[in-house]
Amino acid sequence: MSRLSRSLSALMLSLVAGAALADATLLNASYDVARDVYKDYNPMFQKYWKQKTGENLELKQSHGGSTKQVRAVADGLEADVVTMNQANDIEFLADKGLVAKDWTKKFPNNASPYTSAMVFIVRKGNPKAIKDWPDIAGPGVQMIIPHPKNTGNGRNTYLSAWAWALKQPGGSDKTAQEFLGKLLKNAPLFAAGGRDATTTFMQRKMGDVLITFESEAEMIAKEFGKGEFEVVYPSLTMQTEFPVALVEKVVDKKGTRKQAQAYLDYLWSKEGQENAAQNYLRPRDPELLKKYATLFPAVRTFTVDEVFGGANKAFATHFKDGGSFDQIYGSK
């Protein structure tokens, strides 16, 4: 007993000693592919915070699938802030009382410091002449996307196509579901995740079109070379948001509210916005958007709130068991 407690206290001491080097520690629980964004952002913020307050801030990152991360936070992972790629994940934390109910109002732009858009990646020269959504639903075209029920990436594609069909003359939920039915027939598989879809399309050369985030296109260029593919912007697509929030319960407990708030606020600063742009995410700052216009051509987008009345509602209608996605596969 005493030996155990002695070794435990020794362990605690060494942990405390490690933390003592920093004045405060923040943990950012983030989605999977955010690594690059925050790898660059964290040192920038540390420097800024040191200059402003003289405090040494230690910043830790935890990455994983968005939903998995949120569940970890709900189960007690002491993250000060969450930076996600799906609003319904943060809604879940709001339901659990960990995040403010009105979290979307706590920061500008719906609490999303940068955005992206769903785009088509086609083979060089666009041999199947894919310009817009109906071109993918036609015969003889194969589309590679991640699983619409299990991945945010796949859901965004599904909702983008749905919104396009809805906005056509005479469009209704019924015609949209029919259109999705045709579209999904052209999916020979559902990839495990966004990066898996990219590998399947680029490396295994399957399919005629890959639908993914605009930001992913630049990653593909880095990995596989620019000459291998072309990016096509459909006539209407989803503006995907990357919402952030303070985990109120944790910052109050740890006494890190001030630092955590500043950490998220700084995402909207010139430097924070520039960092997003350099990671191929569309900055909110209109001046920067103009500066990087070659990276981010103008595209007609919609938000989930506008067309589907919020992320939670969209999820419930389309991706819950028995939702429109299941109906399409059930009717086959």
């Binding site: 939903t67 569940r71 699983h147 029920k149 299990n150 999916a187 020979p188 598989l189 559902f190 990839a191 495990a192 068991d321 299941d326 596969y329 086959k332």
Partner: peptide
């Protein structure tokens, strides 16, 4: 390939529910 009714395994459905 994870296509519903064709190549979905039960653990995938479990993940889907989670």
């Amino acid at each position: 390939g994870n296509l519903p009714l064709i190549s979905e395994i039960t653990p995938l459905l479990i993940i889907s529910k989670l």
